[in-house]
Design a protein around this nucleic acid. Sequence first.
DNA 1: ATGGTTGACGTTCAA
Length: 263
Amino acid sequence: MRIATWNVNSVRSRIDRVLGVLERHDLDVLLLQETKCRDDQFPTMPLSAAGYEVAMHGLNQWNGVAVISRVGIEDVRVGFENMPTYGEPPVAEARALGATCGGIRVWSLYIPNGREIGHEHFHYKLDWLANLRATAAGWLSADADAQVLLAGDWNVAPTDEDVWDPAFFEGKTHVTDEERAAFRAVVDAGYADLVRPFTAEPRTFTYWDYTQLRFPKKQGMRIDFALGSPALAARVTDAEIDREERKGKGASDHAPVLVTLSD
DNA sequence: ATGGTTGACGTTCAA
């Protein structure tokens, strides 16, 4: 079984690339973030034609998450228990979608960006990660053998090796001690990084800003992660970051992150 | 090339 996560940055503008990724990697499950469309706008038909089912959750042009699977989609859940809201009036944004695919409880996650240190959105980000940790820890308390995948755009670079220049990020989000601690808390709750062991080279990135020729200059960040429960981590045989997908006209600014599991 | 990216409900916002 092969599962991938990808911040697609508009599923409508990139549906052909989505189909290409599914085929090229022979994916069973693909988790998308930043689909940027309402459910009724989602390009379901070409995915169905390719043999995939789709569960999506999008409220407007912002955020949006989806699960694409050819091994079934059951028990779909929009948002997680205690997921924080944002704004006034409070809105439960389209940032988390859970489903059971081929016996694995998968979550497509789009962690809030944070915008600026100290911004209301920054506190929202930290709360969001803390509540996710609490809820996900509960899943393992209830069933230590649960097969759970927490995957998506975490908007955190967990170490200095995960950014192209730590000095550039001083005073910016994604690299602060608070964000890193919030990410590490999820790992410490029992969810291991399934990909880093297979992509351990420093300066291995999953995201490159569109501006300033960041991609050709290899100036990126590792902020997209697939974290797995112990039972799931035990099944991982390979993982990779599809850097090729970032190339060419019409690429997302994020690369797909892939995990291969034993049966 | 006084530029420098992309996508969306866009003449602005978010990333």
